[in-house]
Amino acid sequence: MEADKPRKPAAQARRQFLLDSARMACGVGLLGIGIGLYAKQAKALPPLALRPPGALKEKDFLGACVRCGLCVRDCPYDILSLATPDEPISTGTPYFVARQLPCEMCEDIPCVKACPTGALDHQLTDIGKAKMGLAVLVDQENCLNFLGLRCDICYRICPLIDKAITLEQQLNARTGKHALFIPVVHSDQCTGCGKCEKGCPLPVAAIKVYPTELAKGEPGKHYRLGWVEKDKAGGSLVAPDVQHQYNLPEGMRYESGKGLVPGGEAAPAVPPGSAAPGTQPVVPRALQGGKL
């Protein structure tokens, strides 16, 4: 220090100031990078944790939610909790796990009303429009309905029965004569409340609610569905519809569900309204083989 004496005090002070600032910037910067990277990881919400109704997209939610827990307090069914630091969810943010306690879909949505920041969007006033996630029948090997049993619990327990989940009838290929009642989730109706997942009687649910972006595919932007476009245009856009002519053995006719049967005139394979005979085969469902 004594050796530094000749230097101008102002210059020395400036030097000290710059050194101190650099030290601070480095130390605090390191801490910041640590927290920043942690924050980046914490943006990924585990699939089993669902946000309350009306929650903004996860990235926006983490900037809007102040972790006050008022949604937790105003939930009359106590399904919400705030994440603790050891859980793989952004610390302090609200979530629920459908398999433990699903959302009861209160009509007045008290959790959204309680939110002071709009992290739960106050524009959501109809709980039927909530998108907490999307139910997916993930395990088609163990789902009882897929095995041909009439479990139907997910369908019956769904608050939007026959809208969010419908039962689609199929032929049971195993027995060849029974029906399968396949639960089908409709993403435009499903709120992601998780009642189906909670209700599934298997030890591990065959139907689960996932974050919508995980559960849903997306068609190419340029994709057009021919039949939709045809309906819109009021007729075929490519070539005139033609009716397929089957070359059936003589004296046989084709009957839906039975195949070739002896008899006279074949029933019209193509619905009458269609255009001229041509090459488009219409194969009945049962002949397409396997499951649909």
Binding site: Y38, K43, D60, G92
Partner: peptide, 17 residues
């Protein structure tokens, strides 16, 4: 730093710590 983090990450990152 916490204010810069909020700006940079778009989340209230400091609340994690």
């Amino acid at each position: 730093m916490t204010l810069v983090l909020a700006l940079a990450t778009g989340t209230i990152a400091w609340e994690l710590a």
